[in-house]
Amino acid sequence: MSLPADPLLIADDVSMSDLPGEVPEGPDVVVRGRRQLVLRRLRRNRAAMAALVVLLLLFVSAFLGPTVYKAITGWDYEGQDFTSFLSPPSATHWFGTTQIGGDVFAQTMRGLQKSLLIGLLVALISTGLAAVVGSVAGYFGGWVDRALMWIVDLLLVIPSFLIIAIMMRNVKDAGWIVLVLLIALFGWMITARIIRGMTLSLREREFVLAARYSGVSSAGIIFRHLIPNMSSLLIIDATIAVATAIIAESGLSYFGFGVKPPDVSLGTLIADGTQSAFTFPWLFMFSGGLLVLTTLAVSVFGDGLRDALDPSSKRAGGGR
């Protein structure tokens, strides 16, 4: 032992032993796989489960809300109430109205639909792409690495805003799915570089060698060993990507490239409502609040998932 500077290190050294003598449960123990174990650990995490419920509620209200609302009050996101401009929340307009009499609740729900889809899909695609490209480049090395990293560098220097702007002009309908793909396409490169770096050090670890010598294929090693070992970073990255994608979309929409009026998204609503945040708070408050709620729920759920995936995490608690 060299000179330990960190008291925790010494304490670790001292309390290294583990496993108090337990009684084996008998021969009929069920051998569970990783998926089951992670799910069990995740289910035990109350905060993560609550966040999941919140996310589900958001989805339900975003997709069913407008229909129900129309049935009750008769307003949808395109309609205008010429009898009330800028009226505060009331029984007829639950979240109030805009300058031109648009119903804020209907618009917010419509916007939430778009933003939830955009945010989650972009996060999933960009982080997934980053994980796969980064680990493939790092694991195989050689020309695969060089080719992939060349693409990464290329995408990093291309002005993404311009490309998206040009592309969005040419697609008229089903524009949002193209938008999702475009935002995702320009959002994964830096993470991929980090993942590549981590893979370079992970692939030297003996467990990768052990897996290889027991006949596991390269794809098996990447998806079973490398990516799970980088899951903490990937989950954090995905969580952040949700919020950035929603904001990025609003930025594009502001210039007329993303979601086009009369269609709305949380981003456009926030952008419109910001100027009057203090004078007419309902224009801003609800869309802003839902954005915060969405990202918060995603991040709490991500935390829970990370703890469930990480066996050394005390919080997920193996029940010890």
Binding site: V31, R205, R224, P228, D310
Partner: peptide, 15 residues
């Protein structure tokens, strides 16, 4: 080092 810390023992052995 030779056991993947992220895999339960059952999965490691049956790999």
């Amino acid at each position: 080092a030779s056991l993947d810390p992220r895999l339960p023992v059952g999965d490691l052995i049956d790999e």
